[in-house]
Simulated scan of single mutants.
Amino acid sequence: MTAAGQDIQVVVFGLGEEEFGLPVTSVREILDHRPAYRVPDAPSWFLGLTDVRGLSVPMVDLRARMGMMQSEPTVATRILVVDLPGRGSEPLSLGLVVDRVLDVSTFAADSVEASPGIGGRWQSSQIEAILRRGADFVALLNVARLFGAGDDGDDIIASFAMAA
Rank of each mutant, 00 (worst) to 15 (best):
Q126W: 15
V10I: 15
T74N: 01
E90Q: 14
F46L: 12
D151E: 13
G153T: 02
S26N: 10
F137Y: 14
S93V: 03
V75P: 03
S125F: 06
A161E: 15
W122Y: 14
D32Y: 10
P43R: 01
R87I: 03
G5P: 05
L92I: 12
G67W: 10
F107N: 04
A42R: 07
E128M: 03
D7R: 08
A149Y: 06
T77S: 13
A76V: 00
L131K: 02
T50E: 09
F107C: 09
P116G: 05
R65V: 03
A164N: 13
P85D: 15
V27K: 08
L94C: 08
V75Q: 14
D99P: 10
I127T: 11
L131Q: 02
T2G: 10
L131M: 01
R28H: 13
S71P: 01
M162A: 14
R145G: 06
M162T: 15
G95E: 09
R132G: 04
V12R: 03
I157H: 03
G117C: 02
R132L: 11
A64G: 01
S44L: 09
M59P: 00
V52M: 13
D41V: 03
L141C: 11
T74C: 04
A114N: 11
G21M: 06
V143D: 05
G95S: 08
D103K: 08
A144P: 03
V11F: 01
V39F: 03
F20R: 07
F20M: 09
T25P: 03
P58C: 04
R78F: 00
G117V: 07
V12G: 04
D61P: 07
E128F: 00
E29P: 08
L141W: 03
G95N: 07
D151F: 01
L15P: 10
M1D: 05
P85S: 08
G5F: 01
L140D: 05
V11D: 06
L15C: 12
V112K: 00
F46G: 01
T77N: 02
F137I: 11
I156V: 15
V143F: 07
A4R: 10
R53Y: 15
S105G: 01
R78Y: 01
G153K: 05
S124I: 00
D83E: 13
A108I: 00
E29L: 00
L141P: 09
R34F: 01
V12Q: 05
D41G: 04
L22I: 14
A144Y: 02
Q70G: 10
P91M: 08
A158W: 00
S26E: 13
V10S: 07
G14Q: 12
M68K: 08
R121E: 11
T25R: 14
I156D: 04
S159G: 13
L49G: 08
G150P: 05
A139E: 13
D32N: 11
V143S: 12
V98L: 09
A76F: 10
D136S: 13
V81F: 05
S44Q: 08
R38L: 07
P35L: 02
L141I: 09
V57D: 11
P116W: 06
A36K: 04
E72G: 00
A144K: 13
A144T: 14
G48V: 00
